[in-house]
Amino acid sequence: MTELKSNKIKAGIIGGAGYTGGEMLRILVNHPNVDLTFVHSNSNAGNFIYEVHTDLFGDTELKFTDVLSTDVDVLFLCVGHGDAKKFLEANAIPDSVKIIDLSQDFRLSQNSKLKSKNFIYGLPELNRDAIKSAQNIANPGCFATCLQLGVLPLAAKGLLNSEIHISATTGSTGAGQKPTATTHFTWRNDNLSVYKVFDHQHLNEIGESLKQLQPSFDKAINFIPYRGDFTRGIFAAIYMDSDLAGDEALKLYEDYYAGHPFTHVTDRDIDLKQVVNTNKVFIQVKKYGNKLFITSMLDNLLKGASGQAVQNMNLVFGFDERAGLRLKATGF
């Protein structure tokens, strides 16, 4: 077992003004093992952090800066897809600095290397041991995390033998901070729509993870994503053919996630508010006839993004995996 450390490390954030950057700030300013050294933002340089993330008033007097510092132990890249690669190509980051990237730039194996930097796919419930010794982490996508955790136990036993059917609804923060026609409040409120039907970008990383555990898997993943009329969270309903009895499937899931502090399995009904504002994942396992039905849910900005990135940081530096992440759910 890795010896847990109590010393502090220095952390920096690139892209601190957006949703994932803001969530990263909220976690790190209260993390017992982190000194937040700098938060980079070209558009907000010189402004207090709390002038952008107004709920942090009283928590920190740190200002945004447009100056990059490499005098850190870990650097979080909270930038848009494609921008992380551009940033690393334009800036020389010493190999002594651990990088945790929240974009999709390095998640797939074919894109996991850039010059001297190799990225490990940062899903702790899949790659915990590799993460502990990694130099750089590619943080998984929000849908990808939610959906993978719903099926990984089956793949680990070679039991994915039919097509997988998924309907999943995400909150508006999953689309990022910049307003668009489909994220604007007046369109999103009291509304529901589908998008990227059967062709969501996270399917590629899901497929790689399933083949990592079950190389023979070659069935279709039929994924219908929905835009929800709520702010944060992902609720996924997954089903497939299965010969497992309900109690067998439940035990398989409980055994797989034993020792993983944020993923919890039950046969009881679950609802989204149980996990919103936390780093938890709740998974319900039920059997209906020959169909195995799995419900998986998480907060897209925490376990689906910044919370998972901090969880990965904790593993990399030998801290308690739950450090800074004992967060209260919305509840009501």
Rank of each mutant, 00 (worst) to 15 (best):
D229F: 01
K63A: 14
L88Y: 00
A138R: 00
T263V: 15
D55V: 10
K85A: 06
S116L: 04
K196F: 07
N111D: 15
N314L: 13
D95K: 06
K132A: 13
D73A: 06
K303I: 09
Q104A: 09
K115H: 08
L68E: 11
I294D: 13
D59M: 06
D243M: 14
N42W: 05
N111Y: 11
G150W: 10
S116H: 06
A323M: 04
S242W: 01
I131W: 04
A11V: 15
C146V: 08
R268I: 07
I9L: 00
L292T: 03
G21V: 01
K98R: 12
K219Y: 14
L123S: 09
N7F: 04
G207S: 13
E89G: 02
Q104V: 01
I221Q: 03
L272N: 08
R107H: 02
A258Q: 15
K98L: 06
H53W: 14
G21F: 05
N118K: 01
V67G: 04
T182M: 08
I234Y: 07
A11N: 02
S69N: 03
E89S: 12
L108D: 11
R188V: 01
A175D: 00
Y226S: 04
P32L: 05
A134V: 05
A90I: 00
A237M: 10
D66E: 14
T173Y: 09
V97Y: 04
D320G: 08
F223S: 08
N7Q: 13
E248K: 10
L301P: 04
N139P: 04
H53K: 12
L123G: 03
Q274I: 08
R322D: 11
I238A: 11
I99N: 11
C78L: 03
S209D: 13
P261R: 06
K286D: 05
K63G: 01
G46R: 04
P153T: 01
A305S: 11
F87S: 05
G207Y: 14
D299S: 10
K280V: 03
I238V: 13
Y195I: 02
H200R: 02
G289Y: 12
D255R: 13
K286Y: 06
S116E: 15
R268D: 14
